[in-house]
Simulated assay, not measured.
Amino acid sequence: MNGMPLYWRVCLINGLVFVVGTAALALAPVTVSATVLVSEAVVLVLGLIGIVVLNSMLLRTSLAPLDRLARLMDSVDLQRPGRRLPESRNSAVEHLVHGFNAMLERLELERGRSNAMALEAQEAERHRIARELHDEIGQGLTAVLLGLKQLSSGVPPAVQQDLLEVQETARATLDEVRSVARRLRPGVLEDLGLQSALAALATEFSAHGMRVRRVTSPGLPELGAERELVIYRVAQEALTNAARHSEAAGVRLSLQRQGEAVILEVDDDGTGMRAAEEGTGIRGMRERAMLIGAELTVGPGESGTSVRLAVPLERR
């Protein structure tokens, strides 16, 4: 019955079961009286139960791939790609399973393309905003500071203290604008490389009260601009989550090579994820990881939350 449509396969199974049941009743030395006796009723009921059980077993074998397909459809997650239903040439629903697997491949491919376009547009927008912050707002605040400095020499002593406070506020605002611009566009990543960018990132978070211990192995292979940017953004998001949500006092930031992959690990000593649903930050990290074929794992660590990104090396 290989290759037979499911409808005709079910009809054939039912037909064979009824034929077997009819032949068994015809050939068996059993008679039925005009008034059905108890013993005759028991035989008929047992025969009916046997037919139903045999029919259900045969149908279950034929329809089992549909149950597996339904379970896979309930659990499929495009952010965790690669799950497929095993195909079998002996399956009555082979064409349905093959079509579903092909649909998953198309959806993952289209999602990957759309994510790549969205993240590329996001990075371009980050660069634009960082440039405007630096060139317009930063230069404007610098001009304000220069003007306040010139005014400070010509104002009465009673006003100088207030003027100094305004200067300090403008200077703090300028520093914050520059810090935001650096986070939006990691120029150190483009100029000095990934390890220097991670060192600057660790220093920045340490300056805000969270201890960041950085562990790197020497001689890391060349990863390319796209992969380095994904590693940097994942590390940045993981450190941000540790500072904002985990109430962590210390974080271990590690970048090392293990076999044919480069592993980024961010482990904090905070309160953990508390069984909360993944937010937009973690989903964004998963989408970035998918773009470069990396594997992202987010879960409980030894004392807090652990983020692990495994970036496979390109085979030459």
Rank of each mutant, 00 (worst) to 15 (best):
E94N: 01
H95L: 03
H95Y: 06
V97K: 03
V97A: 10
H98W: 12
H98Y: 10
F100N: 05
N101F: 06
N101P: 03
A102M: 00
A102Y: 01
A102V: 01
M103E: 07
M103S: 14
M103W: 05
L104V: 15
E105Y: 02
E105N: 00
L107T: 04
L107P: 03
E108I: 07
E108S: 01
E108A: 06
L109G: 06
L109T: 04
E110K: 03
R111M: 07
G112S: 13
R113W: 07
R113A: 06
R113Y: 00
N115I: 02
A116F: 11
A118W: 00
A118S: 06
A118T: 00
E120Q: 09
A121G: 12
A121C: 11
E123L: 09
E125Y: 10
E125V: 03
R126V: 01
R126P: 06
H127S: 14
H127E: 15
H127D: 15
H127K: 14
I129S: 07
I129R: 10
A130W: 06
R131H: 05
L133M: 09
H134M: 05
E136V: 14
E136G: 11
E136W: 13
I137H: 06
I137W: 03
G138W: 10
G138I: 10
Q139E: 08
Q139G: 04
G140K: 13
L141E: 14
L141F: 15
T142E: 14
T142G: 15
A143G: 13
V144A: 15
V144H: 09
V144E: 09
L146S: 07
